[in-house]
Design a protein around this nucleic acid. Structure first.
Length: 262
DNA sequence: ATGGCGAATGCAATTCGA
């Protein structure tokens, strides 16, 4: 079983790239972030024609997540609210960042973590508080079932210095600040592990490069798109790779897809 | 430090992303 994650930075703009990629990469499920489209305008049929069931949770202009799955998903829910309740989640579900469903007994949780803008900003505070609700959300799934979890998406955090091209200049930068890393570590303390790091301990592997200043050409990247797995699934993982090919195309997303295989 | 680029909105210039 292969599960991909890809921040496409607009599904309507990236539709040809995603179709081409799916035609040459046989994933069982693909988690998308930053679809940037309301549900009624999501281009579902091109992906259904490729044999995928399409589950979407979008909004106008910003954010938006989707899961494409070869098998129908069970128990699909969107947002935090159905899991943690309205009082905790209300503020956060205005932004469409969370969708989950069960595929072959594995619960896939697809996340688009808030960017945070800059350290100390209001959006940064929002990002840190978003993680506290995420912990409540994931705890429900971990406590109330013995399902295995694959939590993937754009985390907007590089967990270690080796996940950044030039860490010395990023010591208190957005996506690598100590409080952000603590927030993500607190999630991992639930018993989750980074699939990519099962196979690759070296640095220099990135999943996002800034459009500006020739970031990709100069390989000035960050590894911020991840798959986090519960212990049994982590043991079963046989591969986790970043496919930088789509990032080389004209009009690319600024992120590359990442694929885990069990 | 700043600005660089790209997408959406909506039709020019601004907001947002990371």
């Amino acid at each position: 079983m292969k599960i991909g994650t890809w921040n496409v930075n607009s599904i309507r703009t990236r539709q040809p790239h995603v179709i081409d990629w799916l035609n040459t990469n046989s994933v069982d499920a693909l988690c998308l972030q930053e679809t940037k489209v309301i549900d009624q305008d999501f281009p579902k049929s091109p992906f259904e024609e490729l044999g995928y069931h399409v589950y979407i949770y979008g909004q106008k202009a910003y954010n938006g997540v989707a899961i494409f799955s070869r098998q129908p998903l069970e128990d699909v829910t969107t947002g935090f609210t159905p899991i943690v309740g309205e009082s905790l989640a209300e503020e956060f579900d205005e932004q469409k960042r969370v969708i989950t469903g069960v595929c072959n007994g594995v619960r896939i949780v697809n996340l688009y973590v808030p960017n945070g803008s800059s350290v100390g900003s209001e959006k940064y505070d929002y990002k840190l508080r978003w993680f506290k609700v995420l912990k409540q959300y994931l705890t429900k799934f971990l406590d109330e079932s013995n399902q295995e979890l694959c939590i993937c998406g754009d985390f907007n955090i590089a967990l270690e210095d080796k996940d950044i091209y030039n860490p010395k200049s990023k010591e208190n930068h957005i996506m690598s600040s100590p409080l952000e890393r603590e927030a993500l570590q607190d999630i991992l303390s639930l018993g989750l592990k980074d699939a990519f790091r099962k196979f690759t301990s070296q640095g220099g592997y990135f999943s996002w490069w800034d459009y500006r200043s020739g970031g990709f050409q100069r390989n000035r990247g960050w590894r911020i798109d991840h798959h986090y797995l519960t212990p049994k699934l982590y043991k079963k993982a046989v591969k986790c790779t970043i496919d930088i090919e789509p990032r080389k195309l004209t009009k690319p997303s600024d992120h590359a897809p990442v694929i885990v295989e069990f």
